[in-house]
């Protein structure tokens, strides 16, 4: 299966790339030996994700998934971010090649990790 048009669009023109200086939450998942590393930076106001950016080392799918994930949660609540699943991201992209579903679909994991750490540190549940 080839990449969908939407995957290619996010890959060629990724949204929300880069870092947020003094971010309220940061998380990194994956490792270089697997070919994918995704790092998410969040700015949080109250319980809302005001801004989100990412850095990704990975294949076209990994980059597109990162970009799509940031778009889906920017301006959303922490709870909504935690409810976002990998499958929803893949679905929003019009699907991913089966072999990429597992290895390159890590952005939601990075997001969840960042949000959970933030909530724990701030006594939210």
């Amino acid at each position: 299966m080839d990449y969908t048009e939407k995957v290619m669009d996010h890959f060629m023109n990724p949204r929300n790339v880069g870092k947020i200086e003094n971010a309220d939450a940061i998380a990194e998942v994956g490792n270089p030996s697997c070919g994918d590393v995704i790092k998410m930076y969040l700015r949080i106001q109250g319980e809302t994700i005001e801004d989100i950016k990412f850095q990704t080392f990975g294949c076209g799918a990994a980059i597109a998934v990162s970009s799509q994930t940031t778009e889906m949660v920017k301006g959303k609540s922490l709870k909504e971010a935690l409810d976002l699943t990998r499958d929803q991201v893949a679905e929003e992209l019009g699907g991913l090649p089966p072999i990429k579903m597992h290895c390159s679909n890590l952005a939601a994991d990075a997001l969840h990790q960042a949000v959970k750490t933030y909530m724990k540190e701030h006594g939210l549940s």
């Binding site: 790339v17 880069g18 990194e28 850095q55 990704t56 080392f57």
Partner: peptide
């Protein structure tokens, strides 16, 4: 590289 965490 401009958005690679490894390069950063």
């Amino acid at each position: 590289r401009s958005f690679s965490p490894l390069y950063d």
